[in-house]
């Protein structure tokens, strides 16, 4: 992961003219992507992104944006500079979240309605495999060595560890109710799985061979907020593995967690129904999508403080940033 970030940064330094960093936000209800300049924090533009855009990611070089157009049953592809739409990718029905392997070749897509993970080749635009998983697959994480993709199934309540070699499930780990998101540390030694209704984050240590062992569970408590509303969804961990940030949905807060001791250090108040997170590539800022207040919050990562909120489209869902 680190080398990928570095190479992206280098590529940007060498090849690119001095254009500013950008954040792309998928607006689930507005059917658009909002583009935000991450230097000025101004909205640059908003463009049509297909019907019910949710999961959003970028190619390793930052030149292409992929978005799950859930109601179109495909992954739409856009040029990150011109916003021109490129040929779509087959995704299987109702794609919600996906993850692109570091090489940029294979995209692993959760098909919420069909209990499948679809593997799509981004170059040939063909489906390579369909992997049956639990009921309502959603969260998608990938080990930094790209050997495992982890899918969480919201009604089965498992994290399924799928080998990227043969597309077979090698491990199934039961977690708490309605697991939403899976995220590895940059060194691949830990995996965090958030459970929205269970209100917890399950922490797993990952062995050399990729085998998971549950080592802890993080729960949350905020004075004056009903425990029912502390619903962990999106998560990001700093590349040095020290801090874990977890979006808490209708609690309107992002939890700051010591990723080693698993102690919750703070709660940062953000917009309403905070959903997904992404760092800017330099990790200076963390962006949150706030679905019910139609904005994103910018968090200063070092200070662990919210510094700004920016109005975007209707019901922002996912966010991805590029240099």
């Amino acid at each position: 992961m680190k080398s990928f970030l570095l190479s992206t940064a280098l590529a940007a330094l060498i090849a690119a003219p001095a254009y500013a960093g950008k954040a792309f936000i998928s607006n689930e209800r507005g059917n658009t992507i909002t583009v935000v300049n991450t230097d000025t924090w101004e909205v640059e533009t908003e463009f049509f992104a297909g019907n019910r855009p949710r999961g959003i990611t970028t190619s390793p070089d930052g030149s292409v944006i992929y978005v799950c157009a859930s109601d179109d049953n495909l992954v739409r592809v856009f040029d990150a500079n011109t916003y021109e739409e490129l040929p779509s990718l087959p995704s299987g029905p109702d794609p919600e979240l996906f993850i692109l392997e570091p090489s940029g070749k294979r995209l692993y897509i959760a098909n919420e309605d069909d209990n499948l993970v679809t593997v799509t080749d981004t170059e040939t635009r063909t489906v390579l495999a369909e992997v049956p998983v639990g009921v309502e697959p959603e969260g998608m994480g990938m080990s930094p060595d790209a050997k495992f993709v982890v899918n969480t199934s919201e009604t089965t309540n498992m994290a399924h560890f799928i080998s990227t070699e043969d597309y077979k499930i090698k491990h199934n780990i039961l977690v708490d109710q309605r697991p939403r998101y899976a995220h590895y540390t940059a060194d691949g030694s830990r995996l965090f799985v958030t459970s929205e209704i269970g209100g917890t984050v399950t922490v797993m240590d990952i062995a050399e061979d990729g085998a998971p062992t549950v080592v802890g569970k993080i729960s949350f408590e905020v004075a004056g907020v009903q425990p029912e509303w502390l619903q962990p969804v999106g998560a990001r961990v700093t590349s040095d593995g020290t801090r874990l940030f977890v979006a808490l949905g209708p609690a309107n807060r992002v939890a700051v967690i010591d990723a080693q001791s698993l102690e919750v250090l703070d709660y940062i108040l953000v917009g309403q129904r905070v959903w997904q997170l992404d760092f800017t590539p330099d990790e200076q800022f963390l962006l949150t999508t706030n679905g019910n207040s139609n904005d994103i919050t910018v968090i200063d990562v070092a200070k662990e403080k919210a510094i700004k909120s920016i109005q975007v489209g209707q019901q922002p869902w996912g966010v991805v940033t590029i240099e």
Binding site: G134, S153, T155, T156, M158, H160, N172
Partner: peptide, 10 residues
């Protein structure tokens, strides 16, 4: 169906 899908793993 829902239980059976989960049960398939167990």
């Amino acid at each position: 169906e829902d239980n059976g899908t989960t049960g398939g793993f167990l």
